[in-house]
Amino acid sequence: MQAPLLELRGINKSFGPVHVLRDVALTVRAGEVTALVGDNGAGKSTLVKCVGGTHQIDSGEVFYEGNPVQVHSPRDAAQLGIEIVYQDLALCDNLDIVQNMFLGRERKRGWVLDEPEMEALATATLAGLSVKTVSSVRQPVSSLSGGQRQIVAISKAVLWNSKLVILDEPTAALGVAQTAQVLELVRQLADNGLAVVLISHNMNDVFAVSDRIAALYLGQMVAQVKTTDITHAQVVELITSGRSEGLAQ
């Protein structure tokens, strides 16, 4: 088995008196979709924000490609090749697809934005992910459907030759057909060799695309297993009670 791309050991994080993450360990491998599950308030989003540099961890170790690293800002994370697609869709409605995909990292020629190159790269990235639902990369994001927006947000993450893509509830607000499109894209990312962390509440989504499941319960990592070794009911049990009878750890 290949070495993990990202390994977290003993991560702790508190907000004031609230101890949100307690000695959390997590292993994420390239070419796999790792589903991160847990109830509301279990600490999923906080864990992701710690990896992404939005929050600082209080204690613990982060290993990336086998080396200990420190992530102090979203820029640090991006430099490592970690991209996060946030739940609340971090897209600017007033900008078009290309502008959103390159937001904060525009290509320039001298002082001036290099629009043709950005447009070509955005088009190529969408094509590489077999995305066919958007007709023009110059469409404003405000004109896109929820599923299309999610696909743009995910493609944006891929554009940066990132190695690890973290998706926070990518299908939460989507209809059936759009969910299927997004999940297809999630699987495509892993098949292209990226490590994918999928945060989801939806067991159907989790079992449809994930290779491994990591369950958080009240800030603690209670299980990390292969998806094939666990049943639907057992995952629900882990989420709701933190334990599951007869689960081989």
């Binding site: 939005t54 800002s73 979203p74 820029r75 991006a78 996060i84 946030y86 609340d88 869709l89 971090a90 897209l91 600017c92 409605d93 007033n94 900008l95 502008q99 959103n100 937001l103 904060g104 990292r105």
Partner: peptide, 14 residues
């Protein structure tokens, strides 16, 4: 334009 459009997105973009 991004900051005016969605300040949160702009911040997350670094």
């Amino acid at each position: 334009y991004a900051i005016g459009g969605n300040a949160v997105a702009a911040r997350l973009a670094g």
